[in-house]
Amino acid sequence: MHSPVEQFTIKALLHLELFGFDISFSNSALFMILAVVLSVLFLTFAMRPRQMVPGRAQAMAEMLYEFISDMVSSNVGKEGRPFFPFIFTLFVFLLFGNMLGLIPYSYTFTSQIVVTFVLAAFIFIGITLIAIVKHGWHFLTFFVPPGAPKVLIPFLIIIEVVSYFVRPVSLSVRLFANMLAGHTMLKVFAGLAVMITGAGGIYAPGALLPFLALIGLTGLEVLVAALQAYVFTILTCMYLNDALHLH
């Protein structure tokens, strides 16, 4: 019996090396590239008719665009407009990554803590730099909650600083843990169904139970895949808003 976490193993498909680093093209890399290619192809081909009254595919592409556009303008405001392409790319990349991962025999690159953490760290450092560039020393007032009693300010600053630096950790762990747990659970139930069937005889029909659970869980995982991409993106928007407007 395979371990339920074996599905997360990185398998090199093409050995590559750069400056002594192993940068082999792996199953994870394949699905990253696939997510990019598929999402860009989908958006490009869906928009090809350029109809005034959109068809189904065009309406989907436009809805995706307006969904993120509204998210940016309602959470960040007008100043968030330059970051719209980044936020859009982030959402589509994570959405396609999560969704592609649900296809059997595929690979979910968002289930890797290193991937989610590098994304979250990039966002965290980038947003912090934006805040410093925009506000200079004034940025430090972000850690002082307005209207707090003077006595409490030292403690509040500590809390604010800690919560600020925990942001990339919570952002990355949330996505990683959701993907890890979801896919492990799917594997466990699938394994159980196979195991019961393997027992044979009168036990075999019992395999139906974990199988039905698996169907339900798959639906749930589709929801989680979309939801976690959304959560990651909207939190990025909120952090960006904090950086641009401080309090």
Binding site: V36, L43, A61
Partner: peptide, 25 residues
């Protein structure tokens, strides 16, 4: 390898979205 390909694919995605897909929509 994961970091390398994440950077490559995300940068690619960003450029393609920014320059190709988003302006069309």
């Amino acid at each position: 390898t994961q970091i390398f390909w994440l950077v490559v694919s995300f940068a690619l995605a960003y450029i393609l979205m920014w320059r190709v897909a988003l302006p069309r929509i």
